[in-house]
Design a binder for these strands. Sequence first.
DNA 1: TGTCATGAGGAACTATACTT
DNA 2: AAGTATAGTTCCTCATGACA
Length: 318
Amino acid sequence: MASMFQKPLKSIVRKANRYLEGSEIEKLLKPNKRGEWSDHEIQHLIELREQRLPLKSIGMWLRRTSPSVQKKLWELRDTISGPGTVEGPQALPPGLQEILFYTRLTAVWEALLKSDMTQTWREALQEKSKEEWLSIVSAGIPQDVKNVLGGLRPPTWDELESLPLIDTNDAGMYARLVTSRHKFQMVTDRHLYVGSASKYGGGLNHRIDEHTRKMKRKHESRLQSDIRKKRLEKNGRFITLMVVKMDSPDNDVVLDVRRTVVLAEAILTVWLNALQDPSEDLQSVSPWDSQTLQYTGWASHNPLLVDVVLPFDGNREM
DNA sequence: TGTCATGAGGAACTATACTT
DNA sequence: AAGTATAGTTCCTCATGACA
């Protein structure tokens, strides 16, 4: 709700401040409140914080100063920082985690087949059997990622952070763990961004370089500009979710790898709850209750709604 | 002239130590 | 516990100058 006022309010105040040469427009508005915070105020405060408004803006809404907003939030940190680790063992009897992994992989695949996708994708997926597709996808996923995906409860943020980034020029999938600049994080502050890379010769390394290099606004990646606009911490760590060998620049090979990687991207995006506005069916195959996730999923788009492009027709995103 | 890199200065934002 | 002052960062904007 408040987010739609965020920009106008902020920029209007800034402009007005400039126009009035620092006479502080806020003083022309209602004076700040003082005294104890009511329950209603606190609830409103939490809502605003969930939208990741700057403390200053929150202060303007609540008519409090930003340090006092900050302080109140700090006191509330235990109540509002996301779900803690869910009780229960994550380590399962040997074999069970694998069974869970394959069961879920199959379930997500089935759900994807029933969901919207482009005609080209539908045809491409028919070129191989379900078993072939799934074993190729599965082969590319490192064991520690499989363990996470096959877990009884969703991975904790720490578990995600401990997954390694593999240094490779092969194709594959990555995730970036992005947080807000706050000292304590709410679920809405922690983002798991899922993406894929399949450029021949550069693969994952190239993609990660694109995301981390210092860039002019005009050239920055979509992820970089989103991070900037959302005022998130820009040095979020990358982890590797999948690696697929890309050993030939041959068009057929590249296309095949690219399809594999993008299919895997679709699967893991759904699995990790990173698809925005998923259909009911896709939502339901995500193995964990979204209330128990310690992060907010994030992906640029539903991969199967965009056709895979060949190396020579404008593949800047790959 | 347009574009690109650089960096100074200051605004914006959060954290922390202090006061009432 | 509420509020204030200020320190520590990061980010944005704009001026400057090199280069094609």
